[in-house]
Design a protein around this nucleic acid. Structure first.
Lengths: 208, 208
DNA sequence: AGCAACATTGTCCCGAAGGACTAGATAACA
DNA sequence: TGTTATCTAGTCCTTCGGGACAATGTTGCT
């Protein structure tokens, strides 16, 4: 499997990528248009001016293209995948992740970060009509007391603060939280916050 | 990699699957609930009565679950992936494809047939509507590195996971987080999550 | 040259968070 | 009447998160 890093001439290649693929070639965009062949695995940084065009051309030609971004974003990911890319990730992903991407994409898989895939699923689900098992639905799986605790967690309260506000022992708060994590399949309050929240940076797209 | 075929007791296993994985185990659903361990690759036929529940439980437990259907359909695929499945395909896919699926899904990839992926992209694309390059102004107060860390925090990652993804020491992640908390006047990551997010409950109404 | 900001990492230490295990009290329900 | 779900709460223990303090190297600006 030939690995090719795209790197504008004069710029430095990303060291992280080299760690993942010691024997990869480094080519600038023009060079790549000349030399990349079907089956090659090409890594394109999204800071390139015309990465979209490059991705389209190379993948049309049969290359396996992965786009790496310093600021991963759903819209850019869609651009990339729409142009024919097979993978999309953070440009500073660990070598391990990069190698996984290569393995996955070279076997007809698609590699995107889990949250993005979740977004694909959820929007497609909505588009298909029926409601999805989502947020307030999620809360329906909890008991009243558990919902109360979850609510305070989304307000940024600590266990101790929650205990005081609900007039119960801190230990009991932990008990409820434990039940919540089990029911929703979460590991820790951070994930609970993510589950019950929408990042502000994405509100503009997702609300409208 | 342990491969497990789910097959209701009394039924025949699918010959095609056996061609792909000669050394796979065959288990009925109840057996699987007992014996499947984290990392095992489990193949579930969608004609099972309660395949959805089975998929959810097994994938929760860390197993890699692929759902195979005799009549592949976008809605069923969404059901499967929503329940935690990592792959979805026709039950009579070639051994070659099945092995690809195993390879892909066991490396954090997702495997669905190309048309389905295309549908995901197109519907998500439409849902996102117009583009706009807005970012939360809070994040502008942070350095690049700090933003990268904050972003991963909003994805629910632990410090250790962030360290791995950015290939730095966990201690450095803490350093960045400390700087973030100082700059934004926060106490702990829970408050950071709150600061960067809007509770889903507020997007609609009700709750409490 | 010098200073400031940033990124990196270390050690020590402590409190918060969460799991494992246990258990009493209530209420609903077949 | 036994059973199950819920709420409560205790101990013990481990891991995670974060602050204090110290240090090194780099970059960029004056």
């Amino acid at each position: 499997m030939v690995q090719v890093f795209i790197c504008p001439s004069g710029k430095e290649e990303v060291p992280r990528w080299r760690e993942a693929f010691g024997d990869a070639l480094t080519q600038d965009p023009d060079q790549a248009l000349q030399e990349v062949a079907s089956g090659d695995c090409v890594w394109v940084p999204s800071r390139l001016a015309n990465w979209h065009q490059l991705v389209a051309t190379l993948s049309q030609r049969g290359a396996i293209v992965c786009v790496l971004s310093l600021a991963p974003d759903a819209r850019e990911a869609l651009d990339a995948l729409g142009a024919g890319a097979r993978g999309y990730a953070h440009a500073l992903s660990s070598p391990e992740v990069l190698r996984q991407m290569s393995l996955v994409t070279s076997h007809n898989g698609v590699w995107v970060y889990p949250e993005l895939m979740a977004q694909f699923l959820s929007t497609t689900w909505q588009a298909l009509g029926e409601p999805e098992p989502d947020e307030s639905e999620v809360l329906q799986a909890l008991t009243q007391r558990e919902r109360a605790v979850a609510l305070l967690v989304t307000r940024g309260r600590s266990n101790k603060e929650i205990a005081q506000e609900l007039c119960i022992a801190e230990r009991t708060v932990k008990a409820h939280l434990g039940a919540i994590y089990r029911k929703l399949g979460l590991r820790g309050r951070a994930q609970l916050l993510v589950k019950l929240s929408v990042p502000k940076a994405e509100l503009h797209h997702s609300m409208n």
